Amino acid sequence: MGADSAVTGVDVVYTHENPPDRWEAAVFLAGPTPRSAGDPSWRPEAVAALRERWDLANGRLVVFVPEHRHGVHDDYTGQIEWEERCLNLSDEVIFYVPRDLTTMPAFTTNVEWGMWHDSGRVVFGAPPEAPKNRYLLHYAEKFGVPTATDLPATIAAALDRIGSGASRTGGEREIPLLLWRDRALRRWYAGQRAAGNTLLGARVVFRFGTHWGLHVRMHVAAEDRVKDNEVVFGRPDISVAVLYRPAETLDETEIVLVREFRSPCANGFVHELPGGSGAGGPAEVALAEIAEETGLVVKPARLREHGPRQVNPTMSVHRAHLFSAEITGEEVARLRASGPHGVAADSERTYVEVVPFGRILRERLVDWACLGMITEALHRRT
């Protein structure tokens, strides 16, 4: 059985029913279900509030209701599997917990909250008199989850985050709005579509700040096969700068590196080029990163642009925008004499090292991607 189509633009999908093939937004009504048919559920009121508040101009809002349309409770395992599928399909999981220890103890809700509270796509509401919600509210505050003390305000908080939604169909529905609106993801997906590939499914496997991972299932048009064993990683693009002092030979040409502790590095410290991500255009970010990580202020006119490329296309969708600039002997001396740099608030501490290119090769000071960027800049220096 499918969803019921409503003139308000809100489609309700009950337990065991299949979701529609397209929508602009989807929400899941998580919270306690009455133990007996004689006790009223809070979900009809939630659906009515969603119908009232949802803007028809935004298209279709799907509401997943983990209750049987006809009040029948059967197939416990199937219920769990249906809920897991629809929770992952949802742009916002609306937790409303009017807990009553006799009629709606919300034991399952506690488990679901523990699984979803840090997902970035939940809101939490509960009447002030509802017992045993203090622990849940603690983690709502800790993870910045919007909270409310009544059902209308809880619904409003979820719809505020959804906004106008975004039209998605098929496998696209499995990418929640918080990732669908990510610039790196949109660029990656546009490239896949331009190549004729089809997203058949997706599952968010992690999200940490502006970084995310998405397990995808893709139909590869050029090979007419399905590939589903990879995770796509995403983060904001970076800008990277090769600062160099020319010499008589390529091996003697000096390159500005920054040494910094990075947890994934095998020995803790890594040598890399000045670079990073931030607000502004790629060149603006490059100049800011040079100043932050080396203390050197470079005028925009000195930068030469080499364009963007993916750094690790077998894993991450982000790109590095490469720039280079020739520096003077006096600037080299200042860099060598400078102390630690970086942004303390970001736990960043960098040490400047000016190193001949030949030494970089002999001692394997940088990774292959960094070496490629240095080679590109030196090859194009004249």
Rank of each mutant, 00 (worst) to 15 (best):
A194E: 08
R181P: 00
A266W: 04
A148V: 08
D11W: 12
H16W: 13
T154H: 05
G209H: 12
D251R: 13
Q310E: 12
G329L: 12
L56Q: 15
P44L: 11
P66G: 12
E17F: 06
M218G: 07
A184W: 00
P40H: 07
H70M: 13
G196T: 01
D228L: 07
H321E: 07
G276A: 02
G165R: 07
P152D: 07
F269N: 14
G38M: 04
A48K: 14
G163Y: 07
A25D: 05
W188T: 01
V93R: 02
P105R: 02
V123D: 03
L136E: 05
R181K: 13
G201V: 02
K299W: 00
A57S: 15
N88K: 01
T169V: 14
L56K: 15
P44W: 11
A320F: 02
H73L: 12
E230C: 07
V298R: 05
A247G: 09
E84D: 11
A130F: 09
A291G: 03
M218L: 15
G275Q: 01
V258K: 03
L136M: 15
N88V: 00
A337I: 04
T314Y: 10
E230G: 09
V256H: 06
L177A: 10
L273K: 08
E129R: 14
G307L: 05
L296G: 03
G201R: 02
H138T: 13
A148T: 07
F28P: 00
R69V: 07
R181F: 00
A344D: 13
V298S: 04
H211A: 15
V343K: 14
T103P: 04
R359W: 03
M315K: 12
R181A: 11
